[in-house]
């Protein structure tokens, strides 16, 4: 790993000021992704700005039918949190399925969303739920955030502060994990508000996406009698783990599994 300057600001303003005054800075949350890429010398930031000492970013709260999760909450904090368990229990289950216990102790929800790995679990869930991403200077609608592979609409010097989620009538997420990394080969999230259903998919394409035909069909009739193979194979990944056809089939299988478990 190349060297860098290290900063641990106590406020968001301080963090942004340091960012703006540095050559090629990076924000650091749990480091589970960032430090790994620095060790491989894929990136070499001039400055690391540790966000973990900024206090208000690690809180989880609820108000009426919304919950707010601070961006610096770790996966294990989310999975053990009473509010999350009471309001959207399968979000706690999702957090508890990320990597392994040591990864969950360090990795954060904000880091996962900012990193926008197409195979990560949080982005698909955030896209399916009615969710807004709050940053230090604006509110971004979930659908406007994930624009490409490892690419979001965040500005470089923008910090995610929290994620606000409207509590759904139903939510679940199931993944078919890569047995080594636990990242999704394919993951499916389903969120339902009244009769309005959104189905999203992780792991299968260059970014998490909404499965339109499945969402439409489930909005009309929330049953496992779904139309099959609705996603064009051209849009799906093909790699050593799975062919595009296999992934298309997994999307249908996982969708039915969620409905049947319900």
């Amino acid at each position: 790993m190349y060297n860098f300057n290290f900063h641990s600001p106590n406020t968001i303003e301080e963090a942004i000021n340091i960012y703006n005054g540095s050559e090629e800075p990076k924000f650091l949350a749990g480091g589970m992704t960032l430090l790994a890429s620095m060790k491989q010398r894929l990136i070499a930031p001039s400055d690391l700005i540790d966000l973990r000492n900024i206090k208000d970013l690690s809180e989880i709260s609820s108000k009426e039918n919304h919950i707010t999760i601070g961006s610096l909450c770790t996966h294990s904090e989310v999975s053990n949190n009473v509010i999350i368990k009471n309001k959207i229990k399968n979000l706690a289950k999702l957090a508890n399925g990320i990597g392994d216990p040591a990864v969950r102790k360090m990795g954060t929800i904000g880091g996962s969303i900012a990193n926008s790995d197409p195979a990560a679990d949080w982005p698909a869930a955030i896209l399916a739920l009615k969710a807004n991403i709050k940053t230090n200077n604006r509110i971004i609608l979930n659908r406007d955030l994930f624009i490409g592979m490892f690419e979001t609409s965040l500005e470089e010097n923008e910090i995610i502060t929290s994620i606000e989620i409207q509590v759904p009538d139903f939510f679940d997420y199931i993944k078919f994990p890569n047995p080594a990394s636990r990242y999704a080969i394919v993951g499916v999230a389903i969120a339902k508000y009244d009769s309005n259903v959104i189905v999203t998919v992780s792991g299968a394409s260059h970014k998490p996406f909404i499965a339109d035909a499945l969402s439409e069909s489930l909005s009309k009739n929330f049953s496992s009698n779904i139309p099959l193979k609705t996603i064009s194979l051209d849009e799906l990944n093909e790699d050593i783990h799975a062919s595009a056809e296999y992934r298309a089939n997994l999307i249908d299988v996982l969708t039915k599994k969620i409905i049947n478990n319900n």
């Binding site: 790994a36 690391l48 540790d50 040591a102």
Partner: peptide
């Protein structure tokens, strides 16, 4: 490389002393 921090295991190869 696991060590204990606040009674929980973390991977010492993936954290900076500065953190």
């Amino acid at each position: 490389c696991m060590v204990l921090h606040n009674n929980e295991a973390l991977k010492a190869c993936s954290i900076l002393v500065a953190q």
